[in-house]
């Protein structure tokens, strides 16, 4: 890990941590106090991942683990569950952008279509991961698994579209000046 990558990870985590705590307090999900119905930091670490690659996702992961653990205890379940899930989700979106040759500035039609597809796909993968972990830890049963996956897909996608889209639209050109930006022509 280079110094620049450490800076991306550390600053992204530092930015997302208070936002995650804030999201949990502002939009709690009844029955799950360490979760939020509108996961504000997701929009931030999705944008950071699309700009800076895996190191942005790692920052989101650290922030999620610390914030969720603050309310629900630093257990293995929390780390495997939301923590790793929130590392996987932005990486899925990043991989889709890479695979189809889309860019995070959302200027072309292809970029928009990719963004509109990548976010729900990434949220779905994350939801599948999170609720399969819950199932493995015995907290839920199969009939409740898909309910969790669907609510996760809707809630997470909504937050990422609302928060992440203006960030990508407004700031990608600014970020392009940074030597850490990963999309070089």
């Amino acid at each position: 890990m280079s110094v620049r990558q450490a800076a991306i990870t550390g600053v992204t985590a530092g930015l997302c941590l208070p936002l995650a705590l804030f999201a949990i307090i502002l939009v709690p999900i009844p029955g799950l106090p360490a979760a939020s119905g509108f996961w504000i930091p997701a929009g931030f670490y999705f944008a950071m991942t699309l700009w800076f690659g895996v190191w942005g996702a790692l920052g989101g992961h650290i922030a999620t683990v610390l914030a969720m653990g603050y309310f629900s205890g630093y257990t293995l379940q929390i780390w495997l569950d939301g923590g790793l899930g929130d590392l996987i989700a932005p990486l899925v979106a990043y991989a889709i952008f890479k695979a189809v040759g889309a860019r995070p500035d959302l200027k072309r039609r292809r970029d928009w279509v990719t963004w509109l597809i990548a976010v729900p796909v990434a949220s779905l993968v994350c939801g599948l991961w999170v609720h399969t972990v819950n199932l493995m830890f015995g907290v839920i049963t199969w009939p409740f698994w898909w309910v969790g996956v669907v609510t996760y897909l809707v809630g997470d996608s909504l937050a990422i579209f609302t928060v992440g889209t203006p960030l990508l639209k407004a700031l990608t050109d600014y970020v392009k000046q940074s030597p850490m930006y990963v999309w070089r022509e």
């Binding site: 110094v3 620049r4 800076a7 991306i8 550390g10 600053v11 992204t12 530092g14 930015l15 804030f22 999201a23 502002l26 939009v27 119905g37 509108f38 504000i40 929009g43 931030f44 944008a47 937050a159 609302t162 928060v163 203006p166 960030l167 407004a170 700031l171 600014y174 970020v175 940074s178 850490m180």
Partner: peptide
């Protein structure tokens, strides 16, 4: 409502991210 308030707060994202990006460059 709760969701509208969350959306209102998310508008703070752009200035916050600009600060984060500057800090990231300076820190590196």
């Amino acid at each position: 409502g709760i969701l509208q308030r969350a959306r209102n707060y998310s508008r703070m994202g752009i200035p916050l991210t600009v600060i984060a990006l500057r800090r990231m460059n300076e820190l590196s």
